[in-house]
Simulated assay, not measured.
Amino acid sequence: MSKKFYGNLLLFLTAFIWGTSFVAQVLGGQSSIGPFTFNFSRNMVAGFFLLIIVIPFLSNRDKKANNGVAPAKGDQKTLLLGGISCGLALFFAMTFQQIGIMESTAGKAGFITALYIVIVPLLGVFIGKRVTLKMWACVVIAAIGMYLLSFKSGFDIGKGDILLLICAVLFSVHILVIDHFSPKVDGVKMSCIQFFVAGFFSLVLALVRENVVFANILESAIPILYVGILSSGIGYTLQIVAQKDTDPTVASLILSLESVFAAISGAIYLHERMTPRELLGCAIMMAAIVYAQVPEKRKLGKLN
Rank of each mutant, 00 (worst) to 15 (best):
90 L>Y: 03
106 A>S: 14
79 L>G: 02
109 A>L: 05
119 I>D: 08
101 I>C: 05
120 V>F: 12
89 A>T: 13
118 V>L: 11
106 A>V: 13
88 L>S: 07
116 Y>L: 10
81 L>H: 00
115 L>K: 02
106 A>I: 08
43 N>P: 09
52 I>C: 14
63 K>V: 07
48 F>P: 04
46 A>Y: 11
69 V>D: 06
53 I>Q: 11
110 G>D: 06
88 L>A: 11
115 L>D: 01
109 A>R: 04
100 G>V: 02
76 Q>I: 13
116 Y>D: 05
88 L>D: 03
83 G>M: 00
47 G>W: 07
101 I>M: 15
98 Q>S: 02
121 P>T: 09
80 L>D: 00
41 S>V: 08
118 V>H: 00
45 V>C: 11
59 S>Q: 13
83 G>Q: 01
46 A>Q: 12
111 F>R: 03
54 V>M: 14
101 I>N: 05
78 T>V: 05
96 F>A: 10
121 P>H: 07
78 T>M: 05
105 T>C: 08
91 F>G: 08
76 Q>A: 08
103 E>Q: 12
45 V>W: 10
104 S>R: 04
96 F>C: 07
121 P>M: 07
117 I>P: 06
72 A>Y: 04
84 I>E: 00
50 L>D: 09
91 F>T: 07
121 P>F: 07
76 Q>E: 09
119 I>Q: 08
43 N>Y: 11
42 R>H: 10
109 A>Y: 01
48 F>R: 07
48 F>K: 10
120 V>H: 05
101 I>F: 08
44 M>A: 13
60 N>M: 14
65 A>I: 14
95 T>Y: 04
105 T>M: 09
91 F>K: 04
59 S>L: 15
109 A>D: 02
97 Q>D: 03
64 K>Q: 14
86 C>W: 01
97 Q>W: 05
75 D>P: 00
97 Q>T: 07
75 D>K: 11
99 I>T: 03
72 A>K: 13
81 L>S: 00
51 L>F: 15
48 F>W: 12
56 P>E: 10
90 L>R: 06
41 S>Q: 06
44 M>N: 10
93 A>E: 04
106 A>H: 08
89 A>S: 14
119 I>L: 14
90 L>N: 03
67 N>G: 09
104 S>W: 04
73 K>G: 11
107 G>Q: 07
72 A>V: 04
44 M>K: 04
62 D>T: 14
125 V>F: 14
96 F>Y: 11
82 G>Q: 00
91 F>E: 06
78 T>C: 00
109 A>Q: 03
59 S>M: 15
54 V>T: 13
107 G>F: 06
83 G>A: 01
81 L>N: 00
124 G>C: 06
